[in-house]
Amino acid sequence: MTLTMLIAPFVVLNVVIGMVTYVTLLERKFAARMQSRIGPYRVGPHGLLQPIADALKLMMKEDIVPTAADRSIYNLAPIVFLLPCMLIFATIPFAPGLGVADLNIGILFFLAVSAMEIVGLFMAGWGSNNKYALLSAMRAVNQIISYDLPFIFSALVPVLLAGSLRLSDIAAAQGGGYWFIFYPVIGQLAFLFFIISTLAAENRVPFDILEAESELVAGFRVEYSGMKFALIQLGEYAHVIGSSYLGALLFLGAWGGPGPEWLGPIWFTLKAVVLFLLVTWVRWSFVRIRVDQILALSWKVLMPATLLLLVATGMVVVWRIAP
């Protein structure tokens, strides 16, 4: 165990958690401006200390456990939910050679681990002993399982084009400015399906039926308060950021960009933030659709489409049609 193997995860984890808290502020200000209002403004100059105030508040809150809740499951659920969301950052290379663990099955690890948060979600819903939470958890399992398949298939398109599962290889294959999103038809279609699938896999509007405030009042996290709620929020936003990083890596050329090499991670983060803002923009523009409509969209539209796209990409790669 070398020193870098010990320090790198620590650094990455801290940076990620810091980024996640400030990304909530970015989302709130961006959303507020789209709604003709100002977001957080008073805490710190232009609200810059708002995430810290929120974190402090959540830490100081009383930890309420419902009497009839299944204690062990209820207490473990936030951790089981948070762990996969943090683990996905292990495989992302922030610059050539700068990553925690550059596995040669990088993207497979990412997709497999990010699908494990369903377990945490369902534990939260079941352990709360609350009809609303249970309904939401059942919907969540349905939805995330249905959307993981299009997610995987659309993420496999860059894998096919690059010819390797290793994430740094995929990023290197886009060096020279020709990102996978620029590929004539398959690049854009794959990006579109990727965005739709991540929206659904992260329970973002228009697919956030499982935390639908208007019917289910926060869904599976309705009984959580204080630090456990903070962990669940952290996990959700970490998953969004992780998927944004993955999207930036797969489609937008990761650390490619004008300027010297050490600007690479900054470009990477910028692209991830742009993807995050795109997700936020979609979130604050649409109403949500019902769960049966979400599942219909996944199984009837996205699955065949992504399968066909994968087949087409395979043919393109084998016959070297595209440049």
């Binding site: 709604q35 509007v205 228009p206 208007s214 109403v287 949500r288």
Partner: peptide, 21 residues
């Protein structure tokens, strides 16, 4: 109505704030 359908943290709230404005 849009807020009921879209959620207080989501597109419904956007239309709500526009109409309230």
């Amino acid at each position: 109505w849009c807020m009921d359908m879209g959620g207080a943290l989501g597109g419904g709230a956007t239309i709500f704030l526009y109409t309230i404005r």
